[in-house]
Amino acid sequence: MSDCCPGSKTMDFSDSAQGEDETGARQSQLKQWPIQLHLVSPQAPYFQERDILLAADCVPFTLADFHKDHLKGKSLAIACPKLDSDQEIYVDKIASLIDDSKINTLTVMIMQVPCCGGLSQIAKSGAEKATRKIPVKQVVVSVEGGQILSEEWL
């Protein structure tokens, strides 16, 4: 991770207002930056003892109420098991989130396409590598219509 890119700087805005603004528009539930799994630091304050959502890159675009129904109250990391390189690093980061950040739960949201299953496998491998044991949930989202097809504990 390069320190010269301001987009990689760890930012925690969990104290920002939530709910709706004065116009009635819903506000974002994103409370940290960065979110890409290659760029996040497991030592960031917004991961400490939190519930984590690991979402495939396409998931938020498929679910109309992603922020309200799935992101609210969680810290976020995103990844693409088909396009991201150096995914071995992801297994170590997940293990570090579990052991060092002492996260409470890990929810992995993937699309119903076969390549997305790789993200669940990465999460499972990271959880198996970790010393601490936490609940890991997989949520599968349909490509058409953005419905939740299944939710299961891994």
Rank of each mutant, 00 (worst) to 15 (best):
D51V: 02
D51Q: 07
I52T: 06
L53T: 05
L53S: 03
L53I: 12
A55K: 02
A55W: 00
A55Y: 00
C58V: 07
C58D: 12
P60L: 12
F61T: 05
F61P: 01
T62R: 07
L63D: 02
A64K: 12
F66T: 08
H67M: 12
H70K: 15
L71A: 14
G73K: 11
G73H: 08
G73V: 10
K74H: 12
K74T: 01
S75A: 15
L76C: 08
A77I: 15
C80T: 11
C80A: 07
K82C: 06
D86F: 03
I89K: 14
Y90L: 04
V91Y: 02
K93N: 08
I94S: 03
I94M: 04
A95M: 05
S96P: 02
S96G: 09
I98S: 00
D100N: 12
D100K: 15
S101F: 00
I103T: 06
T105Q: 05
T107S: 13
T107Y: 13
T107V: 14
V108M: 04
V108N: 03
M109R: 08
I110C: 06
I110G: 03
V113I: 12
C116D: 07
C116R: 04
G117Q: 14
G117T: 12
I122P: 00
I122S: 00
S125C: 04
S125I: 01
G126W: 02
G126T: 08
A127T: 04
E128P: 02
K129Y: 13
P135Q: 09
P135A: 09
V136Y: 06
V139E: 09
V140R: 10
V140Y: 12
V141C: 02
